[in-house]
Simulated scan of single mutants.
Amino acid sequence: MTLSTWSSPERPLSHHEQIVRTLGMEILSGALPVGVNLPPEPDLLVRFQISRTVLREVMKTLAAKGLVVSKTRVGTKVQDPTHWNFFDADLLSWRVSLGLDDAMRRHLYEMRSAVEPRAAALAAKRRTPEQLADMRRAVARMAEPGHNRRSFAEADLAFHVAVSAASGNPMMRSLAAVIEAALLASFSLSSPVDETVLQQEVVNSHAAIADAIEAGDSAAAAHAMLAVIDSGFGRLDLPDPDAA
């Protein structure tokens, strides 16, 4: 997908959304570098064939996502990534569309390591029979033969979403919903489907999380979840930026 492709695979976008997406992806890709001003208003009006009113709304949307800041007599400048809101569903989906680089995968791993073991620990105390059944169904799907990377990743994601829901913490479930696209992309990259023995090991490690949750063992559930996250990250075989 090129940066000039406006259409979304999920649903048709409004003209406003198309322009926001195009400029947003150009910022995320570096085509519009950090610290530079966006093209002058007349140029953008001609490029997108829109009114000043629509352009102002586009800039407000980009600013709300932390991508740009507008100042009188200075113009609209691309902000440093520290201001970008990666919990904005649009922004995260654009980033995933551009591909997960090593840094993004590592950031996702660090965030998951901080949150998901705690979610599993809470699920061991709060899960309902229905939620446990959701986890077991996801594990069973993962164990099915004939998966491709995408289908296995979807079953894997369903398991982790079920655990977050079983935590009983709506913020944890909301977080999982926001980052689903990034998780699916990451799971696809670390999918074990090319090796039957490894696939079974991954299935068994997820089943161990469900077993601990069913037993009400919070410590074991957290430990098993962290082991799964560490194993998946290890399969990406990324360089360690903190190594001497």
Rank of each mutant, 00 (worst) to 15 (best):
T2P: 04
T2H: 08
T5R: 10
W6K: 13
S7H: 11
S8N: 11
P12R: 09
L13N: 01
H16P: 07
E17L: 09
T22L: 10
L23Q: 02
M25S: 12
E26P: 04
E26W: 04
G35C: 10
V36H: 13
L38T: 14
P40T: 03
L44D: 04
L45A: 09
R47K: 14
I50E: 09
R52S: 10
R56F: 08
V58S: 07
M59H: 15
M59A: 15
T61F: 10
L62E: 00
L62T: 00
A63V: 02
G66V: 08
G66N: 03
L67I: 05
S70G: 09
K71D: 07
V74E: 04
G75T: 03
Q79G: 05
P81Q: 13
A89P: 15
D90H: 13
D90Q: 15
L92Y: 06
W94F: 15
W94D: 15
G99C: 10
A103S: 09
M104A: 14
R105D: 05
R106K: 05
R106F: 06
Y109N: 06
E110D: 13
R112M: 13
S113T: 08
E116I: 01
A119K: 00
A120L: 08
L122C: 08
T128Y: 00
P129Q: 01
L132N: 00
A133S: 07
R136Q: 04
A140M: 05
H147A: 04
D156L: 00
L157Y: 04
L157T: 02
F159R: 00
H160P: 03
V161N: 12
S164A: 12
S164Y: 08
A166P: 06
N169H: 06
M172A: 15
M172K: 14
R173V: 12
R173Q: 15
I179Y: 07
A182D: 08
L183H: 14
L183F: 05
L184V: 05
F187N: 15
P192M: 08
V193Q: 10
D194P: 04
V197A: 11
I209F: 02
A212E: 08
I213E: 00
E214Y: 01
D217M: 05
D217V: 06
A219G: 06
A220S: 14
A221C: 11
A222M: 02
M225Y: 03
L226Q: 09
I229C: 06
D230S: 01
S231R: 11
S231I: 03
G232N: 08
G232P: 01
G234I: 01
R235C: 13
L238A: 00
D240V: 02
P241L: 07
